[in-house]
Design a binder for these strands. Structure first.
Length: 463
DNA sequence: TTCGGTTATCCACAAGTGG
DNA sequence: CCACTTGTGGATAACCGAA
């Protein structure tokens, strides 16, 4: 019986195989076709290659399958490459039909199907947010793979899994996909999905009603905790303390934790060092905004799902106009399609243009102003670096813009003084108050300064 | 460079707020 | 009631201009 290699080793093995192939192909080719692929172990003589789509599979089969098999045979002491079996998982079905990935992978050697006893599941997940509905591109490939691995082997490989990226890029989708998958694979595992805000409220309630036991029972006994938007813990010391406790309880009992945030761990200011260091124990994966091809794929999939026909040029137009937020992208498609159906007019780029205008302006209006955006605008206005605003230096050149940014953060966002101070390199809340008073007084007495402030506000709102 | 005034910052503490 | 928020006064050291 050959032992299945642990994850790290099989990864290393794949890296080695890739290295070996660098003598045969240029490094560009290797980067393009081979690095996105992951190798899994099925059993003693069979392996699974997880490829982004069928093109990768074809390429491997045509160009280097024999080499891969030989290397695997050598690594596992088999007589020849012919003794090695290789299967594929295609993460994305590029022909546009239904996805196959999630059905085929039971390959990581995960588990036998468990009979469905009454599942002690605490969260119900949105069935629409499954892995098969998640469009994989190279910007979210790592996040997808990480989530996939976790969902099939919770608590083992990547713990905690930390997914970060901007708004509307699919973090919540992945959390739900993990939840769905875990519920499906391991019905007995207690999974819990919570927003960080819910966690905070629960904690405060538990203090108010004097029921810490109930609180800890809810959280510490979870076997797969999926917690969304962890950045909301910033500036809430006792909540962090409690989360630290919860985290350790779950982690120590080898249960899975998955976190999401809008920033990578090290950039979340105002979070205790010990929390951050724990977040990076496992796997930290980014989700970047999708590129054009991926956006097109997303729109096609959405059109399929909604069973509407959308002409290629309209899809291309939408995909090239809306770049950063997948939710908005899908919303635009739905709206355009619904509008055309309602009016009985054909779906054209022109009608799409008209409707999109609406969405874009609305998006701008409703887009919340963040401290970060204010900082960026102020920094740009005074030709400073973002780090200058957060530094400890106090020269007038830095201090005044810093005060302005603090003042505007107070005016334009609902943040508390403490939270603002945190965003400026961990300043004290009274420092923020001081800054606000300073700027207020100056703005009242100096109309030129006041005009300058208005200019900056415009800049913030415009961008 | 040094020196004294200014002030950005942190800290301790108190009072207010909300669920 | 407790955590969070806001506000106040004081200490300190970084800054700044003048000598």
């Amino acid at each position: 019986m050959t032992r299945i290699l642990p994850m790290e080793n099989i990864k290393e093995l794949w890296d080695k195989i890739i290295d070996g192939l660098k003598t045969k192909f240029t490094s560009d080719v290797v980067d393009l076709w081979l690095t996105p692929i992951e190798l899994f172990h099925k059993n003693a003589t069979e392996f699974v290659l997880q490829v982004p789509n069928k093109f990768f599979r074809n390429w491997v089969e045509e160009n280097c399958l024999a080499d891969v098999k030989n290397s695997l045979a050598a690594a596992y002491g088999l007589p020849s490459g012919n003794d090695v079996g290789v299967e594929y998982i295609e993460l994305q079905n590029v022909t546009g039909g239904e996805m196959t990935g999630s059905e085929t992978l039971n390959a990581g050697g995960a588990k036998e199907p468990v009979e469905r006893v009454e599942a002690a599941v605490t969260s119900i997940f949105n069935p629409k947010l499954s892995f098969s509905k998640f469009i994989v591109g190279k910007q979210n490939q790592f996040a997808y793979s990480g989530a996939w691995a976790v969902a099939n082997d919770p608590g083992k490989q990547y713990n905690p899994l930390f997914i970060w990226g901007g708004v509307g890029l699919g973090k919540t989708h992945l959390l739900n996909a993990i939840g769905n998958r875990v519920n499906e694979n391991f019905p007995k595992v207690k999974t819990l999905y919570v927003q960080t805000k819910t966690f905070i409220n629960d904690f405060i309630d538990s203090i108010r009603f004097g029921t810490p036991a109930t609180f800890r029972n809810k959280y510490s006994n979870v076997e797969c905790l999926l917690i969304d938007d962890i950045q909301f813990l910033v500036g809430k010391a006792s909540c962090q303390e409690e989360f630290f406790y919860t985290f350790n309880a779950i982690y120590d009992s080898k249960k899975q934790i998955v976190l999401t945030s809008d920033k990578p761990p090290k950039d979340i200011g105002g979070l205790e060092e010990r929390l951050i260091s724990r977040f990076v124990w496992g796997l930290v994966v980014p989700i970047d905004p999708p590129d054009l091809e991926t956006r097109i794929a997303i729109l096609r999939s959405k059109a399929d799902e909604e069973r509407v026909y959308v002409p290629e040029d309209v899809i291309l137009y939408l995909a090239s106009e809306i770049k950063t937020n997948i939710r908005v992208l899908e919303g635009a498609l739905t709206k355009v399609a619904a509008n055309a159906a309602l009016l009985g007019t054909p779906l054209t780029v022109d009608t799409a243009k008209k409707i999109l205008q609406d969405i874009i302006t609305k998006e701008k209006e409703t887009r919340p102003v963040t401290i970060e955006r204010i900082q960026k605008a102020v920094a740009e206005h005074y030709s400073l670096k973002l780090s200058d605003l957060k530094s400890k230096r106090r020269t007038e050149m830095l201090a005044i813009p810093r005060h302005i940014a603090m003042y505007l953060s107070r005016e334009m966002t609902p943040s508390s003084h403490a939270a603002i101070g945190e965003e400026f390199g961990g300043k004290d809340h009274s420092t923020v108050i001081h800054a606000i008073n300073k700027i207020k007084a100056k703005a009242e007495s100096d109309p030129f300064f006041s005009a300058e402030l208005n200019k900056i506000v415009k800049k913030i709102n415009y961008e």
